[in-house]
């Protein structure tokens, strides 16, 4: 049977792998190629690789590194970071990326979603919707590369990008990032009610039960960073992934 996907998220900074907390304080956790090899051995469902600096510094994707990553990756691979043009996305697909993930471009130039979806099909186009609570505790759309809240109703934005052709939504709870404090179930419920395309929930996952709870709240798949990278109270770097039978019994 089709199980819900459980997806490790790997953050790139320059040529290294890092992990952030609430989208800040990137800590070096290792070499990306080495991590990919470990995730291959663990037969992970899918990988999401995000370059956290590319859009911020208006850099192109690091094609050389991405080619190396894709060459080692025998599971579906999504890449996000610094993709602003059709040509860049085309090059990523030709290197062996299955899905391109847009965030900054989805806010600034949503027509790119449509152009890519028409050519490559919606299933290849993922949009990351990053949500942060404001000082009143209200959910707002967050512009990650500028580190600020965007004056746009996030629900309207979600509907707009799905209409534009996004085939999958990555719902990123910024305040939960790296905290291992459990997913934002309320946010997942609201977003999944509005999304007819698969929704991948990220942020806060710290256990198998968290994964189950996020799926129960309406997510089609769950992604996590810290949960798969850190081990124990002192956050030692140790790459882990649930065993097949654990996931089977979790969803059955």
């Amino acid at each position: 049977m089709l199980l819900h996907r459980v997806i490790p998220v790997l953050l790139l900074k320059n040529n290294g792998l890092v992990k952030t907390t609430r989208f800040k304080d990137p800590k070096y956790v290792g070499d990306p190629i080495n991590a990919i090899k470990i995730f291959n051995d663990k037969e992970v469902d899918e990988l999401l690789v995000l370059d956290i600096l590319a859009s911020k510094y208006q850099n192109e994707p690091n094609f050389e590194l991405i080619e190396q990553i894709a060459g080692e990756c025998f599971m579906p691979l999504a890449y996000g970071g610094g993709v602003t043009t059709f040509e860049q996305a085309k090059r990523l697909f030709s290197l062996g990326i299955e899905k391109v993930c847009l965030q900054t471009s989805a806010i600034e130039n949503p027509s790119l979603i449509t152009k890519l979806a028409e050519y490559y099909g919606s299933q290849s186009i993922v949009v990351s919707v990053d949500i942060k609570k404001n000082w009143l505790g209200k959910y707002e759309l967050y512009h990650s590369s500028k580190s600020k809240i965007v004056v746009l109703n996030w629900k309207e934005f979600l509907k707009k990008i799905i209409e534009a052709g996004a085939g999958e939504i990555v719902l990123n709870a910024v305040d939960k990032d790296g905290t291992l404090s459990g997913p934002d179930l309320e946010l997942i419920k609201m977003a999944s009610a509005l999304s007819k395309v698969p929704l991948v929930a990220i942020g806060g996952v710290s256990s198998l039960l968290d994964i189950k709870a996020a799926i129960g709240a309406g997510a089609s798949a769950v992604a996590a960073g810290a949960y798969f990278i850190y081990h124990g109270p002192h956050r030692a770097v140790l790459i882990t992934y649930p065993k097949r039978h654990e996931l089977q019994s979790l969803f059955n």
């Binding site: 089709l2 819900h4 996907r5 469902d45 085939g167 698969p198």
Partner: peptide
């Protein structure tokens, strides 16, 4: 059941 059929299946 969502369409597309996306993910790992037997």
């Amino acid at each position: 059941l969502k369409i597309p059929h996306m993910g790992w299946n037997n």
